[in-house]
């Protein structure tokens, strides 16, 4: 029957040793690991386009030519029509000295 404490440990011998963990070291480790087939195995984050913070709606009927011009400007800039309307509203506030 072994003794209750079969070997004695002096925990004072156990010292924390500093190890590098800055971003560049982590990247270097990841790169070395990938070369040996040790790659990311965990599922990534949410797929697809991130959620838009633009959750408000305006319900506006405008003249057809204004609708066309807003649409064309948004398309030209690669933004949504909401962005154009937000900018128009910001310009309106500024012109009225409210911002």
């Amino acid at each position: 029957m072994p003794e209750d404490k079969p070997f004695s440990i002096n925990v004072g011998q156990l010292k924390a040793r500093p190890k590098q963990a800055d971003q560049s070291r982590v990247e270097a480790v990841d790169k070395a690991a990938a070369e040996h087939g040790f790659v990311q195995r965990e599922p990534g984050g949410r797929r697809g386009r991130p959620k838009s913070p633009r959750t408000g709606q305006v319900h506006a009927k405008v003249l057809p030519n204004v609708a066309d011009e807003i649409s064309q400007e948004a398309q030209r800039r690669g933004v949504t029509q909401g962005v154009v309307i937000e900018e128009a509203w910001a310009a309106y506030l500024e012109s009225n000295g409210r911002r």
């Binding site: 040793r17 190890k19 963990a21 070291r25 982590v26 480790v29 990841d30 070395a32 690991a33 990938a34 040996h36 087939g37 040790f38 790659v39 990311q40 195995r41 965990e42």
Partner: peptide, 16 residues
Amino acid sequence: EGVASRLMSRAISQAD
């Protein structure tokens, strides 16, 4: 886990 993973390599990077 018993699989070649980045998690394993990162743990090894901090091991004594």
